[in-house]
Amino acid sequence: MNSVSRTPRAEPLDHALKEWAVAVRALEAGRTVLVVRKGGIREKSFAVPESRFLLLPGFEHQRPELVKPDYRDLMEGLEHRSDSGPLRFTSFVEVVGAYEVSEKGDLDALSEHHMWTDEYAESRFKWRPKKPLTALVLRTFLLPEEVILPFRDSYGGCKSFVSLEDVVGSEGARPALSDAEFERLASPLLEVLEGLAPARVGG
């Protein structure tokens, strides 16, 4: 496994991944270390511009029936929230591994590690079938306090990553999982992924 320090580099962050709020909660609670993505409607493909980025909770597309029953408790209080208003950040992540998932069998092998229902995962796989899914193994760090930034028009739309006009400091962040806890979740997942093609991370 790639080595990731429990104490993250105290560098400012200026990119954010739009991710379902329920998935952000799962990452922050240490319930998962995996995100599986395909680009938004306006994107030709999913690309990861940085190895460290903030998590921006989104509410528009998530629905309880799209996540496995074991994760639906994390939906509490999210049902009627919207993506309008200021940006709120409580965590960021470091990419430990990034892989392309191009075969349905490989996606099936990841089922126990992701929070999507198998039906929804397959639907995402079939959308734009010539484009692979990207599996990201992430180490999550919790900010010492919530950071609120103003919404700007450039942040809107169906896009995966947002380039922020304001930066967010990472000083004082702590890992969502201890090294041992992270190893327990990430090691079997990385064993499944290690035979797949790596996905590009960074410029």
Score class of each variant (00 low, 15 high):
L136Q: 04
R31G: 10
V137N: 03
C158H: 06
S84D: 15
A180S: 14
K159S: 11
P132V: 05
T117Q: 09
E76W: 01
D14R: 14
D166S: 14
K131L: 13
W127N: 11
P57F: 01
H15V: 05
R128I: 01
W127T: 12
R52E: 10
L54N: 04
W116Q: 06
R72L: 00
L136K: 01
D14V: 01
L107D: 04
H80K: 13
T90C: 13
A16H: 07
L189V: 04
R63F: 00
E194R: 15
G202Q: 12
L87S: 09
T117D: 07
R81N: 01
F161L: 03
P64K: 06
V95D: 08
K104W: 15
F46Q: 01
E145S: 15
D70S: 13
W127H: 12
L196K: 10
G169M: 03
R72N: 00
F151I: 11
V201D: 09
E103N: 10
F151H: 14
S111V: 08
S123A: 14
L185V: 03
T32P: 05
S84V: 13
L17Q: 04
F92M: 04
L66W: 08
V67Q: 00
V101I: 15
E171K: 13
S45V: 09
T90D: 13
F92Q: 02
H15P: 00
E11L: 14
L177I: 03
S45M: 11
S163P: 07
E171M: 07
R152K: 14
R200C: 09
R6H: 12
S178P: 08
R6Q: 15
R139H: 08
D166L: 14
Y120G: 02
F46V: 00
F53Q: 00
A197M: 11
R31S: 12
A121M: 00
T140F: 05
R124W: 02
E94N: 09
P69A: 05
C158L: 03
S123C: 00
D106Y: 02
I148T: 15
A98R: 11
K44A: 15
V168A: 04
Q62S: 02
R37M: 07
A186K: 06
R42Y: 08
Y155V: 07
V67N: 06
H114G: 03
E19Y: 10
S51A: 14
E60L: 11
P144N: 07
E100H: 14
G172V: 10
L142T: 06
G77L: 06
E19W: 08
R31H: 10
L56E: 05
E112F: 01
V48S: 07
A173C: 13
A186V: 03
S102D: 12
A16P: 04
P8V: 06
P64A: 11
E65M: 02
L27T: 08
E191Y: 01
E100P: 04
G172L: 11
P150D: 11
S51R: 15
S82K: 13
F182V: 10
P57V: 01
E28L: 09
P86D: 10
V96P: 09
S187E: 14
G58L: 03
S111A: 15
V167G: 08
L185M: 12
A23Q: 13
S154P: 03
L193E: 10
R63P: 00
G203N: 14
F89T: 03
